[in-house]
Simulated scan of single mutants.
Amino acid sequence: MREEETEMSTESAERDSHFFLIGEALGYLYPAVLRAVASVKLADHLADGPRTAADLAGRTGLDADALYRVLRLLATRGVFEEDAEGRFRLTSLGHALRSDVPLSARSAILMLTHATFWQSSGELERCLRKGGTVFDDMFGMPFFEYFAQDAETAATFHDGMAAMSDWENGPIAAAYHFPESGVVADVGGGQGGFLLAVLARRPGLHGVLYDETHVLAGHRPPGAEISGRWRTAAGDFFTEVPNADVYLLKRILHDWNDEQGVTILRNCRRAMAPGGRVLVVDAVVPKGNDPHQAKAVDVMLMGALPGRERTEAEFAGMFAAAGLRLSRVVPTGTVLSIVEGVAADDASG
């Protein structure tokens, strides 16, 4: 290649890099406008067909010009689609933005873009410089203490977590061969959606939904086929957990650092019946450069919480420290896996 051709090729690559990185820097605007339309339940007004921004503004009391500009940007991401008459329709990708559909993502969007995550993510440079979370410094207390002090903020978190889990609970429950009988304890189980999915598949199982009192107050009522096999128990999983044959820890360990996570696992090991299992339902970070939701969530956690997403080897180390042995990792068809732990001296697992 001649010298001038090499220079042109280098210049072209530099332009491509510049354009790409500017686009990435503007990427924060997509979740910003997604939160804005989710907050006002805009998608609900498109359930019966496309409408202009002016029509939508009249129905919602919003500013028509601002609304058009927001919808136009989201149309570039396939959430909405603008037709030749300037009407916007909700696409199949945007369907779950509605609040009135069975698997609505609206509450999850409001949680993930809440100020607690948004503002701490904006200060990640401080994490790079000093390590650890920046949340405590920014909000004056640890993440869960901040949420527990305000009912509205806590509801945003718990409703959001439930919305993230609703579509995945069934597939995850179906991916694991739960015992026909015994007791399953959902530790830090929130509103109880996952435990209900497990009990619905195993009529011989009984369940305990274990969480803090203010969380249990918002638990989902079980159906008639489950109500007699279900109870709630309030407590602190850093202190103790109920006796059970199987422990569920769904999206729990990733909130905490290794030492805290080992404490939770050790409490499960101590209370576990002989032959019992601890099932950690979390993302397992894959090797390589391919995109995976866990890699994004891991950075979000870095800003707000002491926890992290983990690799299989990192889970194995935590299990060993708690007197458990990682026996297998079960894929579920979702972004989460079931990391199964048995007693370290259990040769049958």
Results as ranks from 00 to 15, higher is better:
E4P: 02
E4W: 09
E5Q: 14
T6V: 12
E7K: 01
E7H: 01
S9R: 10
H18V: 07
Y30R: 01
V33C: 08
V40W: 01
V40L: 03
L42Q: 03
L42F: 06
D44Q: 05
H45N: 05
H45S: 13
L46K: 03
P50H: 09
R51W: 00
T52Q: 11
A54W: 07
L56E: 08
A57S: 15
T60F: 02
T60I: 06
A64L: 11
D65G: 07
Y68Q: 12
Y68A: 12
G78M: 03
F80Q: 02
E81F: 02
E81T: 06
E81S: 11
A84L: 11
G86K: 07
R89G: 14
S92Y: 05
A96C: 00
S99M: 00
P102T: 03
A105R: 04
A105K: 03
A105P: 01
I109E: 00
T113K: 00
H114F: 03
F117E: 00
L124Y: 12
L128H: 11
T133F: 02
M138A: 12
M141D: 04
F144I: 05
Y146Q: 11
Y146F: 15
F147Y: 14
A148M: 08
Q149K: 15
D150K: 00
D150H: 05
E152S: 11
A155D: 13
T156P: 00
T156C: 05
G160Y: 02
A162Q: 07
S165C: 08
E168N: 10
G170Y: 05
A174K: 14
E180M: 01
G182D: 10
V183Q: 10
D186I: 06
G189A: 08
G189T: 06
F194E: 02
F194W: 03
V198T: 06
L199N: 08
A200V: 04
R201M: 09
R202M: 02
T213A: 15
A217K: 13
H219R: 15
R220W: 03
A224S: 14
R231M: 11
A233Q: 15
G235Q: 09
G235M: 07
V241R: 06
N243F: 04
D245S: 09
D245N: 13
Y247M: 14
K250Q: 14
R251H: 07
L253P: 08
N257E: 15
D258E: 14
N267P: 05
M272W: 09
M272F: 09
A273N: 13
A273E: 13
G276E: 08
V278I: 12
L279E: 02
V280P: 06
D282C: 02
V284G: 01
K287T: 13
A294N: 01
A296Q: 03
V297M: 15
R310K: 06
F315I: 04
F319R: 07
A322W: 01
G323E: 08
V329I: 15
V330Y: 00
G333N: 08
T334Y: 09
V335K: 07
V335L: 10
L336D: 12
S337Q: 12
V339K: 04
V342M: 05
A343Q: 10
G349L: 04
G349H: 05
